[in-house]
């Protein structure tokens, strides 16, 4: 892990914090998917992973790559934007499909 050694401490601490935050939220979201009782409750669980779960890991990635390459590396923002726009579409379609099947 040579490239991580070049990272200064002021960048490593927020990156590590965002990584832990993002992955914990994704884990909590999937745990909710497993634990909640009805489908309509479960539909809320994955949004944890796709909102701040993704944002946390994307921010950590931006910090690490921008500092180690000493230029702004922002292409991870595309993933964040893509996930933010697509998750509502899939959840909406799934919700409507479930509603349709229940009626």
């Amino acid at each position: 892990m040579t490239h991580l050694d070049t990272l200064p401490l002021w960048a490593a601490i927020p990156a590590a914090a965002f990584l832990v935050l993002g992955s914990s939220l994704a884990l909590i979201g999937s745990f909710g998917l497993l634990r909640l009782r009805t489908f309509y409750e479960r539909i809320h669980a994955p949004t944890l992973g796709s909102s701040w779960g993704t944002a946390g890991i994307v921010l950590a990635s931006i910090i690490v790559f921008s500092v180690t390459q000493s230029r702004p590396v922002l292409h991870e923002l595309l993933i964040a934007g893509f996930v933010t726009v697509t998750t509502p579409v899939t959840l909406m379609l799934l919700g409507r499909a479930a509603l349709y099947r229940d009626r």
Binding site: Y40, H44, L48, S51, T87, P88, L91, G95
Partner: peptide, 15 residues
Amino acid sequence: LAVIVTATPGTAWID
């Protein structure tokens, strides 16, 4: 509005 509501955990736009 649909994107906002669904991206916020705790609310889901159904129909």
